[in-house]
């Protein structure tokens, strides 16, 4: 599979195929994995194997739900009675168990096992962040901002290497959330709380970095990184708009959304089109109200917002056709 990914990337770079075609080829080949055997009866064998791994995955998730429920009950009952050492031991044990279980499964090629590994490692990263939070709050005795910074940074530092080994959505979520918490927590270390614009700007930067790392194929899956990074960047600008520089924040967010749409058209990337459309539909009305609301009154503002949304929908529809038609034209 790695060889295929390498060759697809070369073909895309050389302009032989589009990135959309590459993604479809990769998806098709991934569905055909794992090649268990060839020859008569190999199809049935493969089907049995797939069913078995699906059952194992389901059992794994059921076990995880039960374990989490048990942990939740223990936490609610026992946690207040536990001393710091007991809390650390409990969280540490959970983290080590999750990490070890993930490691044991990490050699499996089956997609179900790969997904389970990702979930277990994500749980291990969360446990590591929790552990750090307890140490910071109870042993080092620092404030909430420093605790959040430490816990968030730990989540990211633990999750990213695991993500590089076993790409998947859960580790993406933990790593990205950790980076957001660490960045905003670090800003809270300053004695005077800054304007929310700057909190939002930091969050947007984290999303932007994630997007660029995904786009540059430094973290995989590329599409997950781009979608999550884009959404976090847009969410950051939305948060920034609650500060004093509201118009600037909304305008910048709208620029990011437009950039995502442009990139979607250029690279035949429908997932970016969705991200850009979402940003446009959320941010554009706010910007219009903010800029024109006081000057022209509510009815006229609503009219402008409505017309702009119609225009946006038409434009996105055309962009979507461009994206959908591109592979056909390539053929």
């Amino acid at each position: 599979m790695e060889e295929l990914e390498r060759r697809l990337a070369v073909w895309v770079d050389e302009g032989v195929i589009s990135s959309g075609q590459a993604a479809r080829i990769e998806e098709l080949e991934r569905r055909r994995m794992p090649p268990i055997a060839t020859g008569p009866g190999s199809g049935a064998l493969r089907e049995r194997e797939t069913r078995r791994t699906a059952v194992a995955e389901a059992v794994g998730y059921l076990g995880a739900v039960l374990a989490l429920t048990a942990v939740g009950l223990i936490v609610s009952d026992v946690w207040p009675e536990l001393r710091t050492g007991g809390q650390l031991a409990l969280v540490g044990l959970l983290g080590v168990l999750a990490l070890g279980a993930g490691q044991a499964l990490s050699g499996q090629a089956a997609p179900a096992m790969a997904r389970l590994t990702g979930v277990l490692w994500a749980a291990a990263a969360v446990a590591a962040a929790w552990f750090t939070g307890i140490v910071a709050a109870e042993l080092v005795v620092v404030g909430p901002a420093a605790t959040a910074t430490g816990a968030g940074a730990t989540a990211t530092v633990v999750a990213v290497p695991l993500l590089l080994r076993r790409p998947g959505l859960p580790l993406h979520l933990v790593a990205l959330a950790g980076a957001v918490v660490a960045a905003t927590g670090a800003l809270g270390l300053y004695p005077l709380a800054p304007d929310p614009f700057y909190d939002g700007l930091l969050v947007a930067a984290v999303g932007g970095v994630w997007f660029l790392l995904g786009r540059g194929r430094w973290i995989a899956p590329q599409r997950v990184a781009e979608v999550l990074g884009g959404l976090v960047a847009l969410g950051g600008m939305q948060a920034a708009s609650f500060g004093e520089l509201r118009v600037q924040a909304l305008g910048l967010g709208l620029l990011l959304a437009a950039g995502a749409v442009a990139l979607a058209v250029q690279r035949d990337a429908q997932h970016l089109l969705i991200v850009g459309a979402l940003g446009g539909f959320v941010l554009l009305p706010q910007l219009v109200v903010e800029v024109f609301g006081d000057a022209i009154g509510a009815p006229a503002t609503l009219l402008i917002v409505g017309l702009l949304l119609v225009l946006l929908a038409v434009g996105l529809g055309r962009a979507r056709r461009e994206v959908a038609a591109a592979p056909e034209a390539d053929r």
């Binding site: 390498r6 700057y198 700007l201 930067a205 660029l212 790392l213 786009r215 540059g216 194929r217 995989a220």
Partner: peptide
């Protein structure tokens, strides 16, 4: 994914973005 597939300019862009935003905030 191999080292050859990865885009160094985009990695640098991510680094520049971090430095620029942190500088503005600080």
């Amino acid at each position: 994914m191999t080292g050859r597939d990865r885009s160094v300019p985009l990695l640098l862009a991510a680094g520049v973005l971090v430095v620029a935003v942190v500088a503005v905030v600080l």
